[in-house]
Amino acid sequence: MDLEREPKIEPIACDSENDSEEVGSEVMDGIRLCDSVVDFEEVRSFDNFIILANGLIINSELSEYYQKKYYDLCCTQNSYLHDHLLEGFNCELVCGIISETINIAEAIRAAEVTTPLHSFETWNSTLKCFQGLGMKVGFLSARLAQLINLSLKPNRYRDVLFREAADAPW
């Protein structure tokens, strides 16, 4: 086992009074233990946004880009989306689920009617798996369902036109 790659885990206080100082500097140095759970309602800004998994602060395992995007997604739902993930997942898995959720959310946001249906199907099956693991992604699944319906409408219209053209007497 490569000991240089193992994160240093040191206990720190993570109550809301010292969040802005801790998150801004020390948390970025590695995974840290957290003494208390911070409810999302206590998060006032990105500066005191702490991502916990199994009592560990894992912000440093995600790039700032993913932290900000995750913060934005959590704000839309007024809760940590990963709060109900099954217990015992390692930090890398939790970070992977969060990262992929953000990737899918970004893809959904950028999707157009011409986006291939297999992309929608892949995103949908991934979101279903994440939901089964406890990730709060129902709002993304609902938006994806709307996109799928919109993307299928032109195909239905085209199919009707083709059938009418095939049935035409000329």
Rank of each mutant, 00 (worst) to 15 (best):
L3T: 11
Q67N: 13
E92N: 14
K69A: 15
Y65N: 07
C91T: 11
T114D: 13
E106I: 12
S45N: 07
V27S: 12
L33T: 03
A142K: 13
L133C: 10
Y66G: 02
S63G: 08
S45W: 04
K153I: 09
I97F: 15
L3C: 06
N54M: 02
D39P: 15
V23Q: 03
G30P: 05
T101P: 01
P169L: 02
F46K: 07
Y157S: 10
S151L: 02
L33M: 10
E64Y: 06
L33W: 04
N155H: 14
E92M: 09
L117T: 15
L52R: 14
T101S: 14
G138K: 07
S16P: 00
E112M: 09
I102K: 03
I98N: 05
F46Q: 08
L3D: 10
E4C: 00
E17T: 10
S16L: 09
E41Q: 12
I31K: 02
A105V: 02
S125G: 00
L140S: 07
E92Y: 14
S119E: 15
I102W: 01
W170G: 10
E4G: 07
L81P: 03
I102H: 01
F46S: 11
I98H: 06
M135C: 09
Q146G: 09
H118F: 12
S25T: 09
S25W: 11
E4K: 09
E22M: 13
L133R: 08
R32F: 09
K128G: 00
G24Q: 11
L56Q: 15
G88K: 01
I50Q: 07
A107L: 08
E87R: 06
F120L: 03
L144Y: 06
F120V: 04
S99E: 14
V43A: 02
P154C: 01
S45E: 06
S151W: 04
M135V: 05
I108F: 04
C91Q: 11
K136T: 05
E10A: 07
A107V: 00
E6N: 05
E61G: 06
C129L: 14
E121T: 13
S99W: 00
C95V: 10
D72N: 12
N18R: 13
R156C: 10
E41M: 07
E10V: 15
E164T: 14
Q77A: 13
M1G: 15
W170H: 11
Q77Y: 02
P116C: 05
E6G: 00
L140R: 05
D47Q: 11
A53S: 15
V113D: 08
E21H: 09
I51A: 04
V37L: 12
S36E: 15
K69W: 00
V38H: 07
I51R: 02
L150G: 01
E64R: 13
S16E: 13
I9V: 15
V113M: 10
F130R: 04
S36K: 14
C14I: 11
Q67L: 13
Y65D: 13
D72Q: 14
C129M: 11
S16F: 10
P169G: 03
M135N: 05
S45G: 12
V43F: 03
L56W: 04
R156F: 14
I97H: 08
T114I: 08
K136L: 09
E87M: 05
D83C: 01
E100W: 05
N90F: 10
L140Q: 08
I98F: 07
N59F: 02
N78Y: 07
A142I: 01
N59L: 03
K69G: 00
N59E: 02
Q77D: 03
G88D: 08
L140H: 08
L150D: 14
